[in-house]
Design a protein around this nucleic acid. Structure first.
Length: 872
RNA sequence: GCCCGCUUGGCGGAAUUGGUAGACGCAAGGGACUUAAAAUCCCUCGCCCUUACGGGCGUGCCGGUUCGAUCCCGGCAGCGGGCACCA
């Protein structure tokens, strides 16, 4: 019995594809295109199992679509800027660029060992000037179009990495990489106007019908559209507080989604960072202290957990817009955010939980104005829980008796008629802060001139490249410290000026790389317009759910911004999106609680022990593979041992691709076993196979008939499975088919001297089909078997099999016979047999008769080819 | 707190979306081959009763609709994910 020689064959076929440039493509308007893209990797050092899963899924789709006749673009690149390179520079005294390029070389080799059908001629690395020069140009174009601007603003400052973080990079008040408590700092920053497209980014989600619902909902919530009313309260400052506390008119503008509850108002709350609060702070140390207090706890974890409402009564009063003389106290309130709405609210405690907490604490009036159905308007009251549901208005003058929606409209109209405000829409989405105080990123192409101010780097001076001679021995930005780099003459007036030393957020590179793949070698422009028009949008994008908001939203924005400044007509970059699950593994700890690698653990007599020394091991929960918990398995080692095909097969088997996949030794063993089984099935048939295309006689043995039907059924089913990302089911069907062919082969072997005409021909056809079906999943094995079957062309150049529907359908149906819904017998009936006949046969079954217990049959339900249910 | 999703054998998961629950695989047990092991092959494998034929129960829990519910509806519980003082 032979074993499949993995190393030899995988290397052989990888070279064969490379030598023939099998996966190189070019735009060809005469052919239908298909762009398969997996989220490109960050070159961290070595590939991990998450990569293997991601690229296996993409490769199956790419190879399948290719076999189906599409012109398939399947490229690979490197998301090569980022902090880890600088951390490596710090720890190992190696230049971030050198570290990055070495990692790319390693990981390229590892990816190539997976046998991916990638057009490597299109490989890009975003840290190369020939890539990032284009995004410098794009940025300048955005700047001219008003889509980029500079603003002094509070930023999230990560004290460990010494850098600014985007809102999206702050998780629970901590830096997403370092986990350090984020501080607030005020810096001059570059922003991209993603809010300009807020409405479109939101409404176009509805067109993304090949995106997971979950991702669309997450983006929807992130964009956070609210419709409501924006209006002004007239303010009065009490004696002792001079009127000039007001930066402008003595008024404050608030935003509300509940104008219907205006008559339930009991206070006005302004943010600690509201201009009025800041103006008060200058006169009043107590206010200044209160504000400082609020800012200190700002985003910290405790603040979010305790969420205590705190307020400072300013003494200022606000006059109710509908009731002259009704004055509400104005508080500085810690729960009012300056960044959302107008930074000021009116509080209606009865119908908003935060307002209620606040009112109870400060003894403010609570007046319910919306009465739920079934409650008595005269007595309805709220306790500690605000009522936010529907109902009818009361205590609200002209709104009395209306429902909530009508009252919202009426109140809004009244305010508008009074000229005090207007109904409006606001978004939670904030503009994207893109400045980073880091070295290993794309330089921002502007110059600060003392006389001209902000000057764009002229296009003929692009790219602004990073200097190589930098040091990482002190915290802060090496670009800023560099002795000469930032000092330049102003391109406009020639006087001494300073370069911007911030670099771009690395999410910018990944916001347009898919466009660069259309024409990765074109110079002088980011991409060739025609080629981009042919290849884009990406037909199928595949990656982790962790990018549901950040990367995917930025890429959608960037694409719109590029269209806005005329680069392309593309609107949505990714037509189909698939988010794969994580690769998980059990965790192991030794007696001291130290994490152990799976490869350091052995199982002896059902117990886990340390491989070295045999110490006891605690087996922990099955969680995402991570270096910190050491529950990682190195793909390179697996590919070395079992081959890429086995690793790929395991990635596709058992777990649906959108769910988590537990990596196990037994699982990869199982995959390896199956590969050898396929190998033996094709290379060691027990009868001589007739040549390919040998006609199959009409009369076949029952076993051959069944096998042949299975072949055609499987072709149809697997096509469907692959289209719908049901790889686990596709693998199950491959196994069923190979089981059926093994059975046929064994039969042919047993009867070798008296072989039924056609059995061998059916086996031949089945093997031909089987090998083509496994092509996308196990490409090396498939290629080898294709050659064993006598083909002198490459499998990757052959077409996908076509199912013969007539051969796939059965002429009998297995019908369940139930009595009162309980299964009592199964019948094999000719397909589409007359109902009466089926009924009679069912009732004739002894077991059915027994179950009837002589009772009269009330009715019989016959579902053709499925079920007969006898009801008594 | 709000918004999503999930819950099926010892395990991963199937079930043509209202029609035979448990495909396919993993693990386990038994057997064959072998001096032995590995590899390979065969058999068993939801739970309970029964020598067998067969019967009862069973898709997180409670209820409903239906001839028939893993699937639809109402309620509850548990697990996971996202957002989080968003007015």
């Amino acid at each position: 019995m032979s074993r499949y020689n993995v190393r030899e064959n995988e290397a052989k076929w990888q070279s064969a594809w490379a030598d023939r440039n099998s996966f190189a493509v070019s735009a060809d308007p005469a052919r239908p295109k298909y762009f398969v893209l997996e989220m490109f990797p960050y070159p961290s050092g070595r590939i991990h199992m998450g990569h293997v899963r991601n690229y296996t899924i993409g490769d199956v789709i790419a190879r399948y679509k290719r076999a189906k006749g599409f012109n398939v673009l399947h490229p690979m690149g490197w998301d090569a800027f980022g902090l880890p390179a600088e951390n490596a520079a710090l720890e190992r005294k190696v230049h971030p660029g050198k570290w990055t390029y070495e990692n790319i070389a390693t990981m390229r080799g590892q990816l190539q060992s997976m046998g991916l059908a990638i057009d490597w001629n299109r490989e890009i690395a975003t840290c190369r000037p020939e890539y990032y020069r284009h995004e410098q140009k794009m940025f300048l174009d955005f700047l001219k179009a008003g889509l980029a601007y500079r603003k002094e603003s509070w930023v999230n400052w990560d004290p460990v990495d010494n850098t600014v973080l985007a809102n999206e990079q702050v998780v629970d008040g901590r830096g997403w990489r370092t986990g350090a408590l984020v501080e607030k700092r005020k810096l001059s920053q570059w922003f991209l106007k993603i809010t300009h497209f807020a409405d479109d980014l939101l409404s176009a989600l509805a067109t993304l019908d090949r995106w997971p619902e979950k991702v669309r909902i997450m983006q929807e919530n992130w964009i956070g559209k609210s419709t409501g009313l924006r209006f002004r309260f007239q303010l009065t400052a009490p004696a002792g507080v001079t009127p000039n506390v007001f930066p402008g008119e003595p008024e404050v503008e608030v935003f509300t989604t509940r104008p219907d509850t205006l008559f339930g108002a009991s206070f006005v709350g302004i943010s600690p960072n509201h201009p009025i609060a800041l103006a008060l702070a200058e006169k009043n140390p107590a206010v200044a202290e209160f504000i400082a207090d609020c800012n200190r706890v700002g985003t910290s974890e405790e603040a979010i957990e305790t969420a205590e409402k705190k307020g400072f009564d300013t003494g200022i009063t606000a006059e109710h817009p509908f009731v002259p003389g009704w004055n509400l106290p104005v508080y500085i309130a810690n729960f009012v955010l300056m960044e959302y709405g107008t930074g000021a609210i009116f509080g209606c405690p009865a119908h908003d939980q935060r307002d209620l907490d606040f009112a109870r604490k400060y003894g403010l009036k609570v007046t319910p104005v919306v009465v739920p159905e079934g409650e008595d308007p005269a007595t309805f009251d709220v306790g500690t829980e605000a009522y936010t549901g529907p109902g009818l208005l009361r205590n609200s003058q002209f709104l009395d008796g209306m429902d909530v929606e009508a009252a919202k409209q009426a109140a809004g109209e009244r305010i508008e008629a009074m000229g005090r405000g207007q109904r409006t829409t606001i978004f939670r989405l904030r503009d994207w802060g893109v400045s980073r105080q880091r070295y290993w990123g794309c330089p921002i192409p502007v110059i600060h001139c003392p006389s001209c101010g902000l000057v764009h780097v002229p296009e003929d001076q692009l790219p602004v490249t990073l200097p190589d001679d930098v040091t990482f021995d002190q915290p802060g930005n090496p670009l800023d410290r560099h002795p000469t780099w930032k000092h330049v003459n102003c391109p406009t007036c020639g006087t001494a000026a300073v370069r911007e030393t911030d670099t771009f957020d690395t999410f910018i590179e990944s916001s347009w790389y898919f466009l660069r793949f259309a024409s990765p070698r074109v110079e002088g422009q980011a991409f060739n317009r025609e080629e981009a028009a042919y290849w884009l949008p990406v037909d199928q994008y595949i990656g982790g759910i962790e990018h549901a908001v950040l990367h995917l939203l930025y890429a959608r924005f960037w694409t719109r911004a590029l269209s806005h400044v005329g680069y392309t007509d593309l609107k949505e970059p990714f037509e189909g999106l698939f988010t794969q699950g994580m690769v998980t593994h059990a965790t192991y700890q030794d007696a001291e609680g130290k994490w152990l690698l799976p490869s350091d653990v052995d199982v002896v007599d059902g117990k886990s022990v340390e491989r070295e020394g045999g110490g006891p091991v605690t087996v922990g929960p099955i969680i995402k593979m991570s270096k910190s918990k050491k529950n990682v398995v190195d793909p390179a080692h697996i590919i070395d041992t079992y081959g890429a095909d086995a690793a790929r097969l395991f990635m596709l088997s058992d777990s649906p691709p959108d769910r988590d996949l537990e990596w196990t030794e037994a699982g990869i063993d199982g995959a390896w076993r199956f590969i050898n089984r396929l190998w033996r099935l094709v290379t060691e048939p027990s009868v001589a196979l007739p040549p390919a295309g040998t006609p199959i006689p009409a009369e076949l043995s029952p076993l051959a008939t069944d096998a042949r039907r299975m072949v055609h059924k499987t072709v149809a089913a697997i096509g469907e499975d692959l289209e719908r990302f049901r790889f686990n089911k596709a693998v199950a069907r491959i196994r069923e088919l190979s089981n059926a062919l093994e059975k046929l082969d064994a039969k042919a072997g047993a009867d070798a001297q008296n072989i039924q005409e056609g059995d061998a021909a059916v086996l031949r056809e089945g093997l031909e089909v089987l090998v083509r079906l496994i092509g996308p999943m196990m490409p090396h094995l498939a290629e080898e078997l294709w050659s064993v079957l006598g083909h002198d062309t490459l499998l990757v150049d052959s077409v996908w099999p076509v199912a013969d529907e007539a051969l796939a359908t059965e002429d009998t149906a297995t019908v369940a016979v139930q009595v009162n819904g309980k299964l009592r017998a199964t019948l094999h009936l000719p397909k589409d047999i007359a109902k009466e006949e089926a009924e009679a046969l069912a009732l004739a079954e002894p077991n059915v008769q027994r179950a009837l217990e002589g009772k009269p049959v009330r009715k019989v339900i016959v579902v053709p080819n499925r079920v007969i249910n006898v009801v008594v």
